[in-house]
Design a protein around this nucleic acid. Structure first.
Length: 566
RNA sequence: UUCCCCAUGGUGUAAUGGCAACACUACUGAUUUUGGUUCAGUCAUUCUAGGUUCGAGUCCUAGUGGGGAAACCA
């Protein structure tokens, strides 16, 4: 699965030895020592939003490790807060994980499946004197917690008897008390240096309709009293999560010990940060709700669905996650690494096609009027087996406006007075004339061609420095093409104290081009299939958008690398 | 004036006490019917101070810097 990207020299030769990140190291040690016969991981999203590229890192980690070590992975929806969760998100998450190419061979679960078991765990805790019902108000509880630098104070309800707590907890469950009237707390240590150990709340009363359990429950377990226990119930050996849960680990372990259940082990790694974007579900939700973007799957969003619509492939995202690595250090990954991963994949698999985004007439003055010939063009120079297609060619073509300049230096390889270029897969042409309108705007470029310079049978001996893409005018297909740039102009939009991330939105993140001219074969393209538009970049047809707009809409996934610094 | 985590080129990640490397980015050059690809190359790195050791990026101590922690969120 994940091949080592780097390694140190082995003692025996020049072969680089495989190197493992710290989590894989732990797994290998546990397997070697026999601590576990096999590994079992899980991916536990809360269904309260769409998955993003940061989740992809976690997914690739947990699924990838399980696959590599012949273990199992569970997909578990951590649905303990009914107010924020919904079936829509469950469906979207399932689809995204699947699309990324992963299969939850350990099964699909919901924390809500364990509400009965979790309740029983809570009762056991009470019976063992490890939990109590607290009737303090939220403010009183917060005040009683103390601060990181000052110890908390014990609740006046802390020493109720087991019987009283049992009865009260039963009342909470039975709906005797109104929302927020009281909570169940673990009895640990109000002076603990770790705030999470100061008698954490483990159950609260919340009369909210749950997307799966409906109104069966009016009390819901808190994250800390659900996550570790769910891991344990499912026999998760290695529970991988991001760094912000580091301070929760002592609690995670405390519950496992107090309950005497299967000891899953929580291991934390640094979450993924990408520059020029935001990654928190809350902020992404804001962008969606404020209409800044066209939904969770807007091609500029760092969501899995957005990247998919943009034209990213599962392979490219997996490659990206591999290259990003796993460590505990805070990081901000260059967006260019994501782009590189996409280009690297698409260059190998995407068929080439010709399209002109800003069309200008190109007339071949010495080409017979009314004549059309079909010229073969390779579908992918990187893959011989991709074959060829036939391009219609005639006297009038479309060329790219930016491929002509009235005054050009000798470093300009495109069209200009006195210049000669090759038309891709066709003929070599030389400048003859050009036409501008009253505003000085270019209308037409006239060239003459060399009949003996035809691609594949060129006997002209002429060498043209530049090669231009073109589309035959008569047979061109009209389309709208959307060009995307980074959503934010600042590399760390949410990294400015006292300023909103939305202040750094890039006003030019979306550019809509209409009246683009595509080669006729593209009329049959299917949504989601990647193409390289020669010299322009990688593009994919936006199926849903095309349907709703009533005409073809193409999204540019990523540009080609541009070595031209003119 | 608390607790936890982290510190290697511009970015990310390796080096498991023994020659600091790989990738991305940027830049050069070669090739090229995509100013793409490919190939060759260049720039650039162990936070500080002590200590242990024959030997420290790695272990120890302190400092500095960064991040996290006080929701009836996850």
């Amino acid at each position: 699965m994940s091949e080592p990207t780097t390694g140190h020299k082995s003692e025996h030769g020049d072969e680089p030895a495989e190197s493992f990140h710290f989590i894989e190291q732990i797994i290998r040690d546990d397997l070697a020592s026999g601590k576990h016969p096999g590994i079992h991981t899980r991916f536990p999203p809360e269904p309260n939003g769409y998955l993003h590229i940061g989740h992809a890192k976690a997914i690739c980690l947990s699924f990838g490790l399980a696959a590599k070590y012949n273990g199992q992975v569970n997909l578990r929806f951590d649905d303990t807060n009914p107010e924020k969760e919904s079936q829509e998100y469950v469906d979207a998450i399932r689809r995204d994980v699947q699309w990324l190419g992963f299969d939850w061979n350990g099964g699909e679960f919901f924390t809500s499946d364990y509400f009965g078991q979790l309740h029983a765990f809570a009762v056991k805790l009470i019976e063992d004197g490890h939990a109590y019902v607290d009737h303090q108000s939220p403010d009183e509880i917060a005040a009683g917690k103390g601060t990181p630098t000052r110890a908390g104070q014990e609740s006046p309800y802390r020493n109720r008897t087991v019987e009283e707590n049992l009865a009260l907890f039963q009342e909470m469950k039975d709906g005797v008390h109104p929302d927020g009237h009281c909570v169940l707390r673990a009895k640990i240590d109000m002076a603990h240096p770790n705030m999470h150990m100061r008698d954490p709340i483990i159950y609260r009363i919340k009369r909210a309709h749950h997307h799966r359990t409906g109104d069966d429950w009016c009390i819901y377990p808190m994250y800390d009293f659900a996550h570790g226990q769910s891991d344990s119930i499912e026999g998760i050996t290695h529970s991988l999560c991001t760094l912000e849960f580091e301070v929760h680990r002592p609690l995670y372990e405390w519950f496992i010990q107090a309950l005497d259940i299967f000891p899953s082990r929580q291991i934390e790694f640094a979450r993924l940060n990408l520059d020029h974007t935001v990654m928190s579900k809350r902020k992404l939700l804001t962008l969606v709700e404020d209409g800044v973007v066209d939904g969770w799957d807007d091609p500029r969003m760092p969501t899995i669905s957005g990247l998919r619509r943009r034209g990213f492939t599962p392979e490219s995202i997996r490659t990206f996650c591999d290259r990003v690595g796993i460590a505990k250090r805070e990081n901000v990954i260059d967006f260019s690494l994501l782009e590189w991963a996409l280009r690297d994949h698409l260059n190998r698999v995407a068929f080439r096609a010709m399209a002109v985004l800003d069309p200008v007439k190109l007339v071949i003055v010495n080409y017979p009027e009314g004549q059309t010939e079909m010229l073969p063009s390779e579908n992918n120079p990187e893959d011989e087996s991709a074959g060829h297609r036939a391009l219609p060619f005639s006297r009038t073509l479309w060329m790219e406006r930016e491929d002509f300049k009235e005054e050009a230096s000798r470093k300009w390889f495109r069209l200009a007075p006195g210049k000669t270029v090759r038309l891709k897969s066709a003929y070599i042409v030389s400048y003859e004339d050009h036409v501008v309108d009253a505003d000085g705007r270019l209308q037409e470029v006239h060239v003459s061609y060399y009949p003996n310079s035809k691609s594949g049978s060129d006997t002209s001996g002429i060498k043209a420095k530049g090669t231009l893409h073109w589309v035959n005018a008569d047979t061109a297909v009209d389309a709208e093409v959307r060009l995307y740039d980074r959503l934010f102009s600042d590399p760390k939009p949410d990294g400015h104290e006292g300023r909103e991330f939305s202040e750094f939105l890039n006003p030019e993140s979306l550019e809509i081009r209409t009246g683009c001219k595509l080669e006729p074969s593209l009329a049959q393209a299917e949504g989601g299939t990647p193409f390289q538009f020669t010299r322009l970049g990688y593009f994919t047809l936006d199926g849903a958008k095309s349907e709703s707009e009533g005409h073809m809409v193409w999204n540019r996934s990523v540009t080609l690398r541009d070595g031209w610094k003119g």
